[in-house]
């Protein structure tokens, strides 16, 4: 192992040729072509992800189906159900076959989308917003306000929300509609949003730029709205999207248990519940609404997860 270099352990003083190792100016400003901040970066990242587009397209599709079901089927879901056709297989008129009552499965799925999505969106409108407000108040004021609100959240959090909804729905069974179901679910899901919001507010509140704002003489409230809240929102959006998915599942579970939407209302949960007795004879009546339900929930879950991976640098590292 010999080499051409000079003897070792000598006082040789090596200098790299300056032409090969040019020295750049200290701390030069290098600007990229495009402006970037958290939101534009996240968008640039999301734009490149197929899963984001697939889930967005499915979500949009389900929203359009829910709003305008008649665009997708001309067969009314209930009218014209003939018991004679009970459990008939797929045909040209009824591409997914018929239920036990002789109703068109496809049409019922299309018309059932509304209930699921409505419950989902009302739940996040109620519990997401309530949770975000309670969380930011707790984080903003701190002290005893924080303790009281968070202990209250602990109490609501200590009852599994579907069980709580079962009790509420049992009591209010006379008044059931989409809003009551959403309320029953949302009443016990707000603490998770509140917790995320609070911890984000506390994190941002302690950052130096908020202290710099205080030193500038900005009021606490102005700081909250100008600096703290905008920086606290991203994780809350993610949690909200995921709880939308959970709310849709919860509605279906309640309807399945018979304490959700009234049996007359078109809903995937109700249809699955009604089809369970025909599982062996006509599994299609159970499988198709289940599939619709699963794809909807999956779309929101994937949407939420891709959003998280783009907005949260910690989650990005897991990719």
């Amino acid at each position: 192992m010999s080499s051409n270099t000079a003897p070792r352990r000598s006082a040789d003083h090596f200098v790299a040729p300056v032409s090969e190792t040019p020295v750049a100016a200290i701390d030069q400003v290098k600007l990229s072509g495009q402006r970037s901040n958290l939101w534009t970066d996240a968008w640039r990242d999301l734009r490149r992800r197929p899963l984001f587009w697939v889930s967005s397209i499915f979500i949009l599709l389900f929203i359009v189906v829910a709003l305008f079901p008649t665009l997708f089927t001309s067969v009314p879901p209930n009218a014209g159900c003939q018991l004679v056709d009970s459990n008939a297989g797929p045909s040209a008129d009824h591409i997914l076959g018929l239920t036990k009552q002789g109703c068109d499965v496809y049409s019922r799925i299309v018309h059932g989308a509304g209930a699921s999505l409505a419950v989902g969106f009302i739940v996040i409108a109620l519990s997401g917003i309530t949770g975000a407000i309670i969380g930011s108040i707790a984080g903003f004021f701190g002290g005893w306000v924080d303790s009281v609100l968070m202990r209250l959240g602990d109490i609501f959090f200590s009852i599994p929300y579907i069980l709580a909804a079962v009790v509420i729905m049992s009591v209010f069974s006379a008044y059931v509609n989409v809003f009551v179901v959403a309320l029953a679910i949302g009443a016990f899901t707000w603490p998770s949003t509140a917790r995320v919001m609070r911890s984000e507010v506390l994190r941002v509140k302690n950052s130096d730029f908020v202290m710099a704002g205080t030193a500038l003489g900005q009021s606490r409230l102005a700081l909250m709205f100008k600096h703290v809240l905008p920086n606290s929102i991203p994780p809350v959006i993610v949690v909200t999207t995921l709880s939308l998915a959970a709310a849709i599942t919860a509605e279906a579970t309640l309807s399945f248990l018979g304490v959700g939407l009234p049996s007359g209302t078109m809903s995937w949960g109700n249809d699955i519940s009604a089809a369970q007795s025909d599982l062996r004879s006509n599994p299609a009546t159970l499988i198709y609404p289940s599939l619709a339900l699963t794809i909807t929930v999956l779309s929101f879950v994937i949407f939420g997860e891709t959003l998280r991976e783009s907005l949260d640098p910690k989650a990005r590292a897991l990719r």
């Binding site: 003083h13 790299a16 190792t21």
Partner: peptide
């Protein structure tokens, strides 16, 4: 070291 190169070395 500077930017991945040794620019100078010695006692």
């Amino acid at each position: 070291m500077y930017k991945g190169d040794i620019v100078e070395a010695g006692p």
